[in-house]
């Protein structure tokens, strides 16, 4: 974990999930922009508590919030032709910190499907064009 990664909030801290987490910019340990928070996962436990377990990233999940059917179509297209295979990537909420406007995630995005398209385009297309650096 990077030294400057924020400590978890104190017990009892109020979190405005929709305002401060959903749709926020995710920034990883290396300060890399790693996508937006497209969904939030909650689990209903046996004792009746609703526990926030993860945040999600993936275009199908964002689009499902507008139209579940179109979101499913995009996921199906992704499974067939996509680099991420239509996968919606989940990040455990324990690795998430809300810091002001952005959401910090305690992982290296380059090693996850979050940057799969970036890697694929870089290796298969961009790097092959002269002047790409």
């Amino acid at each position: 974990m990077a030294d400057d990664f924020p400590e978890p909030p104190e017990n009892g801290t109020r979190l405005r999930l929709v305002r401060d987490v959903l749709d926020s910019q995710m920034v990883d340990r290396k300060q890399c922009q790693s996508g937006k928070v497209d969904g939030i996962v909650a689990e209903l436990r046996d004792d009746g508590r609703l526990v926030i377990t993860a945040i999600e990233n993936g275009l199908p999940e964002a689009v499902r919030r507008v139209s579940p059917r179109v979101g499913d179509w995009i996921a199906a297209l992704g499974r067939r032709w996509g680099v991420r295979k239509g996968e919606v990537y989940r990040i455990p909420f324990a690795r998430v910190r809300n810091t002001g406007i952005d959401v910090r995630i305690d992982l290296d995005a380059a090693a996850t499907p979050l940057l799969a398209w970036e890697r694929w385009l870089r290796e298969h297309v961009v790097r092959r064009i002269p002047g790409a650096g």
Partner: peptide, 17 residues
């Protein structure tokens, strides 16, 4: 909109999408 790394000042390999 999708939270990618971006910037015209970056080299193309640094912001492929």
């Amino acid at each position: 909109a999708l939270g990618w790394n971006w910037g015209e000042s970056k080299r193309p390999v640094e912001a492929a999408r």
